[in-house]
């Protein structure tokens, strides 16, 4: 179901790559179980990723600061600094896509991880193919832009009205920039993608299922809590009144 060609296209779509030639996508795996750490590393390397590993939270933070990574895979239960704390710390510094990996899979772990700013989560044990699919979806979100693979997908009317204004919020669909009352708002790729989804249809209600499908590339198997928590995070950044909850249906962007 996967081939080298697809992997290649992901890394090409990554945008300006450091150094000559298309560099492989860098993934940092922070996992305390040695077997999983090594096996995931080997598996992902087979798919063409450059994989760095760390065994605990502080080591993970250090490794993240040391090298440029395009994506982070964090275990929730880590010694020293747990995955949730680590995710918080990383979010303060960077909007890099974060995939949480939880072995407990109960609501608290999942919600805490997503609240901390993770873009998605998987419950162990996860098949390598599934993990790679999630990684690709995350990277697609991270790299889409005017020329990104997803830009055309939603059929957004770009030029010349690439500047959309909602009250004090300005969304530049070309420059991929969001400003609130003049100040730039730093959004993670998932949050930006979600906001663009709303901006494309201001005033109309988007249900969770549809958002999960269009933003996260999930089918019915997806967990709508991911949407709820991402909306929650987005609200904190762009103003809580901007996105309204429509009980029983979903969310909508307020125009004025």
């Amino acid at each position: 179901m996967t081939s080298k060609a697809q992997v290649g296209s992901v890394s090409e779509a990554r945008g300006p790559a450091p150094g000559p030639g298309p560099a492989p996508v860098g993934v940092l795996v922070v996992e305390d179980d040695a077997t999983i750490r090594r096996a995931v590393q080997l598996a992902l390397e087979r798919y063409g990723y450059r994989v760095d590993v760390a065994a605990d939270g502080l080591g993970g933070l250090e490794a993240f600061r040391a090298g440029a990574h395009d994506l982070l895979i964090l275990d929730v239960m880590l010694p020293e600094l747990d995955g949730i704390g680590l995710c918080h710390r990383i979010r303060e510094e960077s909007p890099v896509p974060v995939l949480m990996m939880s072995a407990r899979g109960d609501a608290l772990d999942v919600v805490a991880g997503l609240e901390a700013g993770a873009d998605d989560y998987v419950v162990k044990p996860v098949d390598t193919a599934v993990m790679v699919a999630r990684i690709r979806a995350l990277l697609r979100r991270a790299t889409f832009g005017p020329d990104g693979p997803a830009a055309g997908k939603t059929g957004r009317d770009r030029a010349p009205d690439h500047l959309l204004t909602f009250g004090d919020l300005t969304v530049d669909t070309l420059g991929m920039e969001v400003r609130r009352a003049g100040a730039t708002v730093s959004l993670t790729p998932t949050e930006l993608r979600l906001l663009l989804e709303f901006a494309a249809a201001p005033g109309s209600v988007l249900d969770r299922r549809r958002l999960l499908r269009d933003v996260w590339d999930y089918g019915w198997e997806g967990d709508t809590r991911v949407v709820d928590l991402c909306v929650l995070r987005l609200r904190k950044k762009i103003g809580s009144g901007r996105i309204e909850t429509v009980r029983g249906f979903g969310y909508k962007l307020v125009r004025g």
Binding site: A39, V123, K124, T128
Partner: peptide, 25 residues
């Protein structure tokens, strides 16, 4: 009971995850 279930889940899934990933190799 919930904590126990979650702990059991963690203890069972962690080696299983290693196994699944390694078997995939």
């Amino acid at each position: 009971e919930r904590r126990f279930t979650a702990d059991v889940a963690h203890e069972l899934r962690t080696p299983l995850m290693g196994l699944v990933t390694a078997a995939g190799l």
